[in-house]
Amino acid sequence: MKHRWRIALAMGAATAWVPGGTAWAAEAQRSTFGTLPDGRAVPAATLRNAHGVSVRVIAYGAAIQSLRMPDRRGQVADVALGYRTLAEYLAKPQYFGATVGRYANRIAAGRYAVDGRPFQAPVNDGPNSLHGGVAGFDKVLWTVTSVRSGPVASVTLRYVSRDGDQGYPGALTVDATYSLDERDTLTIEYCATTDRLTIVNVTNHNYWNLSGEGSAAGAMGTSVTIPADRYLPTDAHAIPTGELRSVAGTPFDFRQPHAVGERVREGADQQIGYARGYDHNWVIGAEVTPDQHLMARVSDPASGRGFELWSNQPGLQFYSGNFLDATSTGKSGHLYREGDALVFEPQIFPDTPNHPAFGSARLAPGQVYRNVMTYRLTTGAPE
């Protein structure tokens, strides 16, 4: 408690006492993150709590631009990859911290059908459509509809994707809410409604480096646990084959904690070769559930930073940053290279519209799509 109290005092004006209460209140502050070429300003909001945790969300891509948290010594670092300026997000899109959709992950050849009617999404990842197409949710300006301080600080953003946008039917209204509380819990909730039968799969694509986004050590020493007995093997173009394969005896077995770097280069495994590391979906459940369940435990032994990830989704896409190629310079002036970050994306399985056995990605008028992701952040035992 002394450790956290010291951090709270250091935060100063970033926190406030809850009248009549016994805890600090988290704060939300508005700002602007540059201007688009057409003159539209890009709003931003920063959520802070009393323990040195803060997250900055920008309306371009409804993205996490910064996520700062202390280590076991109280040293605060930014653990989310990203750029310092809007111009860099426009010039070299990398999905840093972004909301991705209308259909996150891949659709084979961009082709799918809804009630027998064929649709074509733009192809932007080899032969496939990735993260909604050429102009997915990560490349549009969202509207900030709410910024709130209090026991839980939050920002809500909205985007209305028109009927036919990127080849998807129906006008889709999507709300993204980021919230931070005094228990160091960061929650991202996506809700969507449609006026016509469509498909939806929205998630967040934050790149995590718990040692700090500019750390020369990279993220390969990060310990990961994923409570899944099976995963989805893919073809050479990252499309699931349809098999639900056992993780037993493979580099994909994270039922016990493993450092990512232990097995990420095991060339004898064809799946590792296809993806140049991990870029696969783990089978956590069979369908979207009313309640959340554990998706992953992630920790950095050196700093003590970590998190538990909970969600209501059936799949977890785990990506080991295999295609970071030193063409992007991050906030600290560090060139991002292969293995510098990890991505954990709760979602419906990739290419579900073309695999009936995977379940359904359909959303009909009157229904509400929800993906709720809860990160229970930890900073290790104080020294």
Rank of each mutant, 00 (worst) to 15 (best):
G132H: 08
Q29D: 08
H51Q: 14
V18P: 15
A296I: 07
D78Q: 00
V298D: 09
D351T: 10
I226Q: 04
A217K: 14
Y95H: 12
G330F: 13
M220T: 07
R337D: 10
G116L: 03
P353F: 00
G249C: 06
I199P: 02
S179T: 05
S328P: 15
T99Y: 00
V18R: 05
R117G: 01
V140H: 08
E287M: 13
D115H: 09
V76A: 10
T156I: 06
S211Y: 15
F119A: 14
L363W: 01
T173C: 03
L377N: 10
V76M: 04
E182Y: 05
R56G: 03
D138T: 02
T173H: 08
F119G: 06
F33K: 03
A45G: 09
V264K: 10
T241M: 08
Q75W: 08
L67G: 01
A26Q: 10
L157P: 03
V174R: 12
A98Y: 03
Q347A: 11
E27Y: 09
Y159T: 14
T185E: 11
Q292I: 05
L90H: 11
T99F: 01
T194D: 08
R376C: 11
R305N: 01
M69S: 00
V114L: 02
P290S: 15
D78G: 06
T329L: 13
V283M: 00
S360N: 02
L157K: 15
R117N: 04
Y231D: 00
R48T: 01
R276L: 09
G339M: 02
E243G: 15
T327W: 01
E308A: 14
P70N: 09
S311T: 06
G366R: 04
G20L: 03
V42R: 03
A296F: 11
G167E: 01
A10K: 07
A91G: 14
A302G: 06
L9N: 09
Y278R: 12
G21R: 00
G359D: 06
A8R: 12
E27G: 15
Y336L: 15
P169D: 11
A248H: 09
Q271N: 13
P93R: 14
W310D: 14
M373W: 00
A357I: 02
W208Q: 05
G150S: 03
Y375D: 12
D38A: 11
R337Q: 12
D38V: 09
A238P: 05
N371P: 00
V123A: 02
V152L: 05
Y207W: 08
R196F: 02
F358H: 15
A268G: 10
I272D: 10
L197C: 04
N128R: 00
I7T: 07
S211H: 14
S54F: 04
R106C: 15
T143P: 05
L335Y: 13
D235V: 02
W282E: 01
G330A: 06
V76Y: 07
P43A: 05
S31H: 07
M220Y: 07
F318P: 04
W17F: 02
Y369G: 01
N105Q: 15
M1K: 13
G132R: 11
T198L: 03
G221C: 00
D291E: 13
A41Q: 03
T193V: 12
P301V: 11
T32M: 07
V134E: 12
F119V: 12
V134T: 12
